[in-house]
Design a protein around this nucleic acid. Structure first.
Lengths: 333, 333
DNA sequence: GGCCGGTGTGTCAACGTTGTCACAGAGCGA
DNA sequence: TCGCTCTGTGACAACGTTGACACACCGGCC
């Protein structure tokens, strides 16, 4: 900036005014400064600006894995909001590892993130997060909350959605329904299992531990699935607790050549679910809206909004495509 | 840092030494400084550090759309390399819009990105990129190059892969094969079409413009597809130029209830391609390796590696699953 | 004429860190 | 004893920007 000032024969401050478009600058001064800027290829040094201003117009996004379509769609929505409002977005995958997640949050926060949208990994230390918030880094939780932390949350209607999906199978004549969800320590997994159990109970059906698998879909051994499918009293229908489990199970069923196909309802939609035959009935979430709302909420906080914390529950939507309507043994006709 | 120094009764510089673990500090001084740091919850201000050091240990990643599974997997791989080497990753989707892409690159670069991995949007101004590189921001192009720019590239074997996929259909008795690819201005689209044309030519088949659609898969009207499928001399097989087109076409074929199913080979693998019936034969790329190699290459450049630019071509792999082996009218038996 | 607000420009300090230099004591070999 | 290296610490400037403040000029109004 000094060079530009010298070239244009003005003071540093005047160049600063031109660059930022604030304050009074005469037309001719402006022109000569602009010319000097263009000629020298000057670019404002953001580090110095950030240091001086104490802010970086940056937000962070930490979620389990960008390669998961649920999160990648959410990421894109956050990106769009951030770009629109002139914020830079930092993002990283926690890989569901609390220490990696913590490292990421620390690095974002020390790099001046004004706020962070966080899908907390299971086992995240609440005290740590509390400290970050106290240090001035706003937080919005998406997909999963951390109980007792003063922050906004944007979650899906996990219990209600899973209840509806399960009830849908029951209504089509299934009484013996298996549930496959993520590890017990994952919030959404237990919420959705709760919804599943509620639906069974409402229908007067007994829930059976042997019909519930809670494990990481990527790591669960195939035997775990076979144990359920080949139980003495096997299920006639399946509820998948997330899109990873849906894909895993559908692949497994195809490999087994399972016939007749069990009734199937997946939580969270996934690509090609409509193209499979039968189409896969799902309880769809809306990751794009989730991301957009979280980003807008966070940016409001960053801008100084002190209103009470919001706890948004996004409704789910049952999309009927065939697999959830395969008649069970107790179907009316 | 001043507060810590005061609390520990030492100079600023000594605190700096403790924080960075460089230089000589006596055990007891270290202990008292550490205590002061912990007590005050001190965190180094990265802005000031960056200003002083002139670097931010940051790299950027700009691609078309994180919500596209190809790019989301690539992103995850880049993330992992960056994290491993202590770099922060900035990433954003260009939405295939040159001006958005440019804005993103500028913002990354002015925020001190030491280098950028770029999947250049079609129509990206080479002069602009040249300027960024001259300004000290290393670049690695993934998926698509920008001709004439001094930078490393990591690309897929587009021509060879498409040729192999098309030849595979021909070998199974198809002589009339349609090609659906991205807009003509997209590098990979024309490369893959070239491979497709080469395979036809090698087999002594005539290529027919009416059998080639080059359009954005999201925006192409359904009639465009129907025009091809319902041509006077309709295709018996289809090559899809990317995973977006594969999904679009498979959905379209299902909606039409098209029978018999045309032979089908997709460029780039996609989730559930193996679960569909028949399984979808694809020419698979390896986005994770592409991302990893690009990130490693970029970090080497950032670290000062001045070796000649590398131009890596990642091989593709034909995965046979059924749709590409449906016999065509000229099948031998 | 004196005062005012609007316009245009410059000086200076400060943001928080780290590299350079300086200094001082201890240990040691010549 | 001198000079050397190793250890431990501090003073100070500099990174490039911007906010606070000061100043000077102009036209208009009482």
């Amino acid at each position: 900036m000094g060079d530009v000032a010298a070239a244009a024969g003005v003071s540093l401050k005047t160049v600063s005014r031109v660059v930022n478009g604030v304050g009074y600058v005469s037309a001719e001064t402006l022109a000569s400064v602009q010319a000097a800027i263009d000629q020298l290829g000057f670019r404002r040094n953001e580090f110095a600006r950030q240091l001086r201003q104490g802010t970086a117009a940056t937000i962070g996004l930490v979620l389990e894995d960008v390669a998961d379509p649920f999160y990648s769609v959410l990421t894109r929505a956050v990106e769009d909001v951030a770009l629109e409002q002139g914020y830079l977005l930092l993002s990283a995958s926690s890989a569901e590892d609390p220490s990696r997640s913590r490292r990421i949050v620390e690095s974002f926060s020390s790099r001046g993130a004004d706020g962070i949208i966080l899908a907390p990994a299971r086992g995240t230390d609440p005290e740590f997060l509390r400290g970050e918030i106290a240090a001035g880094c706003s937080m919005v939780f998406v997909d999963r909350p951390v109980p007792g932390i003063p922050a906004d949350t944007v979650l899906a209607e996990n219990v209600g959605g899973a209840r509806e999906g399960t009830a849908h199978l029951i209504a089509h004549g299934h009484h013996r329904i298996a549930f496959f969800g993520d590890q017990e320590s994952v919030y959404t997994a237990t919420e959705r299992r709760t919804g599943y159990c509620e639906a069974l109970e409402e229908a007067g059906l007994e829930s059976d531990e042997a019909m519930m698998v809670l494990a990481a879909p990527r790591e669960a051994p195939a035997e775990l699935i076979d144990d359920v499918l080949e139980a003495a009293d096997p299920p006639t229908a399946i509820v998948a607790g997330n899109n990873r489990w849906s894909v895993r199970l559908l692949r497994h069923l195809k490999e087994r050549g399972q016939r007749p196909l069990p009734g199937f309802v997946g939580f969270d939609d996934f690509e090609l679910g409509d193209v499979l035959d039968p189409g896969i009935t799902v309880v769809a979430q809306d990751p794009a809206t989730m991301g957009r709302l979280a980003a807008e909420l966070l940016l409001r906080r960053v801008a100084g909004d002190e209103a009470p914390h919001e706890h948004i529950r996004l409704p789910t939507r049952l999309i009927v495509r065939g697999s959830g309507e395969l008649p069970g043994p107790f179907a009316e006709r």
